[in-house]
Simulated scan of single mutants.
Amino acid sequence: MFDWDDLRIFLAVARTESLSGAGRGLKLDAATVGRRIARLEERLSAKLFMKSPQGYALSEAGDRLLPHAEAAEQAFAGAEEELSGTAGQLTGQLRIGAPDGCANYLLPQVCARICDANPGLEIQIVALPRVVNLSKREADMAIAVSRPTAGRLTVQKISDYHLHLAAHSDYLAKASPVRDKADLRAHRMIGYIPDMIFDKELDYFAETEAQVVGLASNSASVQMHMIQAGAGIGIVHDFAIPFAPGVVRVLPETVRLTRAFWLIRHVDDRRSERLTRLAEALGQGLRNEVARLETLAVAETWSQP
């Protein structure tokens, strides 16, 4: 017979791939976590983890146990919601993973409004230069710039968004004219570090005739700061332009990119009314905020003298 507490420890080790990492989350020392895993393995007569220099990886038996342990986790969470009278209410702590641009320019104000409407709610925003791993419970839900094709996930499109070339007006006033894409060759371009682009949807420069990225970062917000400092021209989210005084769109009719945000949840979380309500509020809030900020960005467009 399974002990939920043992399964809880099993899930923590599976997600962190470390006894010490699991212990930190569970507020237990690593030795205690190790003993509990050993006890569970003895009870099941199966080795659940393979130890390597990289950490604790699930064995074949551990892989088979994982979905059952996650189902038990969801069942306990659902029971707790029902018995506490919080089913469907937006309370407690929730963690959202998101790419840099969304995390910096959209989620702060969207999540603030959701928290204002739900005083018992605490939201954590995890901004990572990669896709958040929901299987390891790095977050309760995630926003991505491309639709995942593998994993036990549910995926919902939130909204399209747009990107344009942009530069600071002071830079454009003293730089070579930019009348078409060919003129970009005379300018320093700002963009992503090529070998650190974690999603093909972030590889923007095929859309231009620029040859070299002279200044680069794996962070969209750092790129925007470079542009605002007058360092060159880059491709930026329209929704970020209102946060950067002096930055204007360049060649908006010539270079215009469309991308999409996707809301990703673990498939087992469909049973949580609370998470479903948060997903609905988050999706609607992001759609409204993208539309509002993109409308403001249209006014910030450079007119070549």
Results as ranks from 00 to 15, higher is better:
202 L>G: 10
260 A>H: 07
189 M>H: 11
73 E>S: 12
304 Q>C: 11
136 K>N: 10
94 L>Q: 12
209 E>A: 10
176 S>E: 13
266 H>N: 09
262 W>S: 04
136 K>S: 05
231 A>H: 00
56 Y>H: 15
126 V>F: 04
269 D>S: 09
299 A>T: 07
152 R>D: 08
178 V>Y: 04
218 N>W: 03
37 I>C: 05
12 A>N: 02
179 R>T: 12
2 F>E: 15
294 E>Q: 10
31 A>G: 08
139 A>V: 01
193 I>V: 15
229 A>C: 00
44 L>G: 07
37 I>K: 02
147 R>V: 04
69 A>K: 04
185 R>W: 12
273 E>H: 05
105 Y>D: 07
30 A>Y: 08
28 L>E: 05
17 E>L: 09
136 K>Y: 07
272 S>T: 07
4 W>A: 14
158 I>W: 07
137 R>I: 04
157 K>R: 12
26 L>T: 01
209 E>W: 12
221 S>R: 04
161 Y>F: 12
95 R>L: 08
207 E>C: 10
218 N>K: 07
6 D>F: 14
194 P>E: 15
196 M>D: 15
35 R>I: 08
213 V>F: 09
198 F>P: 09
69 A>G: 10
181 K>R: 15
149 T>E: 11
140 D>N: 03
302 W>C: 03
45 S>R: 15
249 R>D: 00
111 C>T: 14
232 G>S: 00
118 N>V: 04
107 L>Q: 08
237 H>M: 01
107 L>N: 01
111 C>A: 05
152 R>K: 09
28 L>R: 08
55 G>Q: 04
257 L>V: 06
114 I>R: 11
65 L>Q: 06
82 E>S: 12
125 I>L: 00
5 D>F: 14
70 E>G: 06
196 M>T: 12
52 S>G: 14
224 M>T: 01
261 F>K: 07
186 A>I: 11
258 T>N: 03
47 K>C: 09
181 K>M: 11
30 A>T: 08
211 Q>R: 13
252 P>Y: 05
255 V>T: 00
38 A>C: 05
163 L>P: 03
115 C>Q: 15
141 M>Y: 04
115 C>W: 06
103 A>V: 00
271 R>S: 11
